[in-house]
Design a protein around this nucleic acid. Structure first.
Lengths: 218, 218
DNA sequence: ACACCAATACTCCTAAAGTATTAGTGACCT
DNA sequence: AGGTCACTAATACTTTAGGAGTATTGGTGT
């Protein structure tokens, strides 16, 4: 069993490793504490399953998840999350994850999930299947119809970067200083984001980012 | 060694337990998955140290921490956090915690922290001592600690009304037209909201509203 | 009758946000 | 080698946001 563990918390990685060791006598376990190292790991090596924590620093977890699933569509991904947010679950599945496990649940759920996904099944908490069908936009539908894939596609890396900072309530000036850019440049990027996503102002950018889970909650 | 572990994630509890078992041959380890059970545990039993996870959002963690430290001032508390937020660290120390360890760091830090606090010392990441003196940065992307009750209490009905419209990405002009007010009046309300909640701009109002779930109900 | 306060509206003012255009640079492509 | 594109930055401009102050209205409670 070749497993890739992606989590920035060493404590969790160790717990997962121990859990897997008890379950599988033959275990090849690679750990990554960031999205970048994880992606380079899957380039060099084949894995049977990947266990990914939903909130990893540096890059947004969802962006990483998409990259991972695109790069290795055959690699089943089990998402570990500290939350039970239905939107996040749905988003993960849409991006290509094959299982979703809450950290608060019993650890054995992780093993259950692995067993399911390596035979091609999907493992989801019962909560999701119920809510998926009912979650069709009960929303204050002011924002354009944008999903994560579209946003990631039409925005450049730099724009995504600045989008996240807008979504933290930061002003252009603060963004400029933190990124070491001129105010003018920031404004150009903001304008480009607004045009690309057909939004009217930065408040809507913030709302969209929140809705799509593009924010690092830290 | 009698240790109380408070964390809602079974994975983390197990990892900590294993870690402690390897370190201390004589170990009496009690686990609690919620604040309530933890508080009742310390009523019935004496502990040498408590390890408490900071489940950040919701504020219950801080409330619990305060209760715990008040109830047993002699019990040293090690706070485990997923973030390295300086304000959170400072707040924990103010409430009576004796150590602060980031989950991303090496697990051995937890042992280090325990060793420190049981002899009466304080264990802090180097980051804190540096940043404490530089005060709480006014330009960080962090929202003030606000929960729903506080917001509903300090804002008038009209302000809540306008807060929701801001949180939908509407401009002052749009709000004024829809509510049949003058632009000036809307601005007065917006200013009052910003002042009352100690926020810096309307983007943060939108984020707060989203975070507190204030935008679904009308 | 009085004090209090939310809500409304106004003015004056500054800062921030956003639009439009031009332009230099480097990377990548095929 | 020429073309495209992302990023950067500048100038010049309009619009929006936000602060500070004043004032009127209408309701509330004591």
């Amino acid at each position: 069993m070749r497993v890739l563990i992606v989590d920035d918390h060493q404590l969790i990685r160790a717990a997962l490793r121990d859990l897997l060791h008890r379950q599988y006598s033959i275990l090849d376990c690679v750990e990554a504490s960031s999205g970048e190292t994880a992606l380079s790991a899957v380039k060099q090596k084949e894995f049977d399953v990947a266990i990914v924590d939903l909130f990893i620093p540096g890059e947004t977890a969802f962006v990483f998840l998409q990259k991972l699933c695109k790069q290795r569509p055959s690699l089943p991904v089990v998402v570990l999350s500290a939350t039970d947010n239905q939107q996040h679950m749905q988003q993960c599945i849409d991006l290509g994850a094959k299982a979703f496990v809450n950290k608060g649940e019993a650890m054995e759920k992780v093993i259950d999930a692995i067993e399911k996904v390596i035979i091609g099944d999907v493992f989801l908490p019962s909560a999701l299947s119920k809510k998926v069908e009912t979650s069709i936009s009960p929303e204050s539908g002011e924002l354009p119809d944008l999903n994560l894939e579209i946003v990631l596609k039409v925005l450049t890396d730099r724009q995504l970067d600045i989008l996240r900072m807008i979504a933290q309530g930061k002003s252009n000036k603060v963004i400029a200083r933190e990124k070491e850019l001129s105010d003018n440049t920031v404004k150009v990027h903001v304008s480009a984001i607004l045009r690309a996503l057909d939004l009217k102002n930065r408040t809507q950018i913030g709302l969209l980012a929140q809705k799509l889970g593009l924010i690092n909650f830290n």
